[in-house]
Design a protein around this nucleic acid. Structure first.
Lengths: 341, 341
DNA sequence: ATGAAAGCGCTAACAT
DNA sequence: ATGTTAGCGCTTTCAT
């Protein structure tokens, strides 16, 4: 038979209400009674029944706050869709979402959003805004009030967040190098394009790629690292210059940056098909580049899954007290070619 | 407010019991009453509450039957693990599994298992045994008794199964060709290895690959299609011969077959690293081959996801009356290189 | 053919 | 500090 709260109450000689208090850490139970109940629960391997719990929560649904950049940022579309899928599954289990869109460049907004959500009684928060001291403080504030925060896509290291769900950036760089090594088997020159080396996140991919080039068997040489600042103009201009300087350039790794600019630069030099290109993500520009056979590979770390998982992890923690398996939860790295679209 | 059965009962001027009968297609309600209730339910967009339903089912849990080849078949490990993950999520929703392991070569066993499960009162069946007339009949038998059957991994075409969840074999062949085209950019010879061209499933990958070679820009020529019958000895021997005949062979596509045999044959001819190899799945031999840099790519269609999805789809259908979105539900095609392990 | 009521396991408001 | 009780929305048994 399945162990119920009622069975525990019977064995402990108390009422179900008391057991409920103990099991949910609510105050007002004598320590010795509490201990006895916990002992019995352990012994019987008590696991609360989700359906029952959910049903009881229908009156006052559990609310999770979601703090992320505004809707016009394409990449987050995918993540949101994953969150939506999880929310759909959890709807009947009494879960509601409260979205807060904040400017990624304004840490104060993100920090404020967390505080508001905590005040508003959220039971947990999904968070994705660029790292900052203000934000760290806000996350810790939430954590201390018993509101777990799961960061996704971009982490806030050193904060008291429950865990991080996102990409393994170094690995995606490593995989990119692996692909380059396979399509360019002779000695050859490649260039790396990133956003800004000042950002940890942007650097990680570059480092991963470099590591891949350093490993045995690679004959590739990175002739330059370009910072495109995620802007079309900068990316195009600098790539244009590198292409001019190196007529024998064999590969481009778009670690971060405007893919359309890369495609256009290659076209401008008439080098379509003669340069191997590896980029990241599957936004329209990358998809288009793949179909035109200008981009060879794009590396994706399932943003949908990122959204789905982060909500699921938060839910399992809040509802069933499950601890995340690791502090960093990486989504799988996948390689796409035009044929796999 | 959420629409409940009680609200519908109130509006229709009947009891909740009657509404329940109507909504679950149970007999014993006058047609005009039934119609009225259905109308109201529609109008109000009634959606049953999962948690409540699940809770009510705790007394007599819902049982899904699972018919698949015995545990010693490696590939099914992954699928089982996916089924397990879904089962874990559904456990508290009152779902139990009843596994039946049957010999994949003996259709009568598979057919009998379905009948047994239906007799035993299963509410749905997950099925993966090679296609056959006996099996088709059994699936239809189940369907007529209102027990939906979802086939996974290998389909039973033309049967009354609810839907199929599995790989898009043609696509995996197409992707394999895409990879070959990218790593071999000059004119070159490749060989295709499959199990037996008699099987539809084995042929599909080969056809996909051929299609990929036929597409614009490919300079590859398939010099042979080898049947290895999924046995080490046959695969090794025939590949050995081809390698001897074609000293300039540049690529091998292991559509189906013993990967270890392929690796060994290449080693025997000392052609490691000089032949590009694309295979399927991520069984130990493939993983080993990748790490040794003898296999360049392996194509995977997420067997875990296959298991997870098929159970989830069955559950959603039985519990919430949701129709599958399509008759064929393909899992995503993913490419692995050693760096992505 | 239909209604009434008990119960699934847990929570929360109200008593004591 | 602890017990009692009324739900949460649905199913099912027993009356009528």
């Amino acid at each position: 038979m399945t162990v119920t709260i009622r069975e525990i109450a019977r064995r402990a000689g108390v009422s179900r209400g008391t057991v409920d208090r103990v099991l949910n850490g609510r105050p007002g139970v004598k320590p010795n009674v509490r201990d006895r109940i916990l002992e019995i629960a352990n012994e019987l391997h008590y696991v609360p029944n989700l359906a029952a719990k959910a049903l009881a929560y229908q009156k006052k649904p559990i609310v999770f706050g979601i703090v992320m950049p505004p809707k016009d940022i394409q990449f987050f579309e995918f993540i949101r869709s994953g969150i939506g899928a999880a929310a759909e599954e959890l709807k009947d289990l009494g879960v509601r979402l409260d979205y807060r869109y904040v400017d990624n460049e304004r840490p104060d907004e993100g920090a404020a959003a967390i505080r508001e959500l905590v005040e508003a009684g959220a039971s947990g928060i999904l968070f994705s805004v660029m790292d900052d001291e203000l934000i760290r403080a806000s996350i810790d504030f939430a954590a201390e009030r018993g509101v777990p925060v799961v960061t996704f896509n971009s982490d806030v290291e050193g904060s008291k967040r429950l865990c991080f769900v996102g990409q393994d950036l170094r690995k995606s760089g490593l995989v990119a190098a692996g692909l380059m090594n396979r399509v360019l088997r002779e000695e050859a020159k490649v260039v790396i394009v990133t956003g800004s080396l000042k950002f940890h996140a942007h650097r990680s991919r570059v480092e991963g790629f470099r590591q891949g080039l350093a490993e045995g068997g690679s004959r590739l040489e990175a002739v330059a690292v370009i910072e495109g600042f995620d802007r079309y103009a900068d990316t195009f201009e600098r790539l244009d210059r590198v292409l001019a300087e190196h007529p024998d350039l064999a590969g481009i790794y778009m670690a971060t940056g405007d893919v359309a600019a890369c495609v256009d630069a290659i076209k401008r030099h008439g080098r379509e098909g003669r340069i191997r290109v590896v980029c990241n993500d599957l936004l329209p520009a990358a998809e288009q580049g793949l179909r035109e056979r200008i981009i060879d590979f794009t590396i994706v770390q399932n943003p949908e899954r990122q959204g789905y998982l982060s909500l699921r992890i938060l839910f399992d923690h809040v509802f069933s007290g499950k601890q995340p398996e690791a502090e960093h939860h990486f989504t799988e790295t996948h390689i796409y070619i035009p044929e796999s679209l």
